[in-house]
Design a protein around this nucleic acid. Structure first.
Lengths: 231, 231
DNA sequence: CCAAAAGTGTTTTTCCTACACCCATGT
DNA sequence: ACATGGGTGTAGGAAAAACACTTTTGG
């Protein structure tokens, strides 16, 4: 999260401003979050947490989030969609001193990640949600807030497009929804509803290669995240 | 908004953390926002803006918002519902130096305000939304973000309860919705829908005094803001 | 008795839900 | 030919939308 305890008297610099990022992707129909190793003796040893760090004088909170996502978690921003989540300002949220954290959600399609970005290293790895607990600082709470926001926004916006590859089948899209909202959807009803929204366009080609009928490929009509009743 | 330019070298304290509040009420079926006078020569003279100020070392951002709402805008917190809006961190959002602002929405029923809180003074007053422009700092943008959030949340939560008096008629509630979402609602359909949600309870008495048929009074069943499809 | 707002019901249309079988392909 | 996931339609019920008149009160 942040570099060091504030070295200045409290009246000069009572609070540090930092940012933390909750980076999501979907792999094989499963929602994953990117965690990093946290080692800050004596407070945290061999702990894990969300990527983040200080905001610099010449950058916005969002720019800092993008930068730390790259520096700490190894994820380049180019294919990543980022949006502000919440600002955490509890006085004791960081044991080393007063730190206010502006948190961000980040979304990246698994297929847009390079091999290095997909890879798990000692310092940063993709974790299943149910394995992401006992995190440093207030990151357990932060992740819960992130999941609640993700689940909520996915039902009334086209946000899920930011987790899908450029081309995908309707079954893959349905599985992405199911991974996030954790309900089973009816295949026929899902297709009727999602196609009626006119947010998808059918591509001219199909996905072949399985030993079964090729599947029609689709892509999102727009890059923009729109507010529209989805589920 | 904030007190003074940061008096310390940039590397010691590059950013100040502040909070701004967007306080809403509804009077006579019209949505109002509380503005204050801003006089910070040479940057702003005889300007207006949203109430706000610095966050102190020993308080959370929300506590600071509550405090400044009281100190700057004269609104006591007791009857006020507050929720975080967005954190603004553009580098030049304050001409006096780097200030990151955690903004809050505040909602208070007009009838819960004391005469002093209802009153307009030279330093603080209730403004119609359409007259609230050309505000200091980035407060025009902040107000727009606040309105968008309010309009959105009102349609899928019971947030409007925080703008209604303890007792109200269905017509008053309908007017409150109309003031916020700026559509005309069908009286019969509105009543059917809102009553079916079971978020209201009919009181034993009616509102009399007009030279017309007395109206049944209602109140919200719960103080909590719930997520439920409303409009 | 008039003005003003309160209160109420029905019909039509749209949307949601539940549900089961055939299709196209690779092996 | 068979295993696998792809793809489709319909009927019944619930919710939304459109729409206008009667009631109660105070003046």
């Amino acid at each position: 999260m942040k570099e060091k305890p504030a070295p200045h008297p409290a009246h000069l610099r009572f609070a540090t401003i930092a940012t933390d990022v909750v980076p999501f992707t979907i792999r094989d129909g499963e929602l994953l979050v990117r965690l990093i190793a946290v080692d800050r003796p004596p407070y945290y040893t061999h702990a894990k947490g969300l990527p983040g760090g200080l905001i610099d004088p010449k950058e916005t909170a969002e720019e800092a989030a993008v930068r730390h996502l790259q520096e700490k978690a190894g994820i380049k921003a180019s294919k990543t969609h980022i949006e502000q989540l919440y600002t955490f300002s509890a006085i004791d949220r960081d044991p080393r001193g007063r730190v206010v954290a502006v948190s961000y959600l980040a979304f990246v399609p698994w297929e847009a990640l390079s091999p290095a970005e997909q890879a798990d290293t000692k310092g940063a790895w993709w974790s299943r949600i149910k394995d992401a607990h006992k995190l440093a600082y207030d990151h357990d709470e932060m992740l819960q807030v992130a999941l609640a926001r993700l689940r909520s926004r996915v039902t009334y916006t086209t946000l899920i497009g930011k987790l899908m590859p450029k081309e995908f089948t309707l079954t893959e899209l349905e599985q992405a929804y199911e991974a996030i909202v954790k309900t089973d959807l009816d295949k026929r009803n899902f297709r009727k509803k999602i196609l009626k929204l006119n947010i998808l366009k059918a591509l001219t080609h199909k996905r072949t290669g399985g030993r079964f009928r090729p599947a029609q490929l689709y892509s999102f009509v727009s890059d923009k995240v729109r507010e529209i009743e989805v589920l």
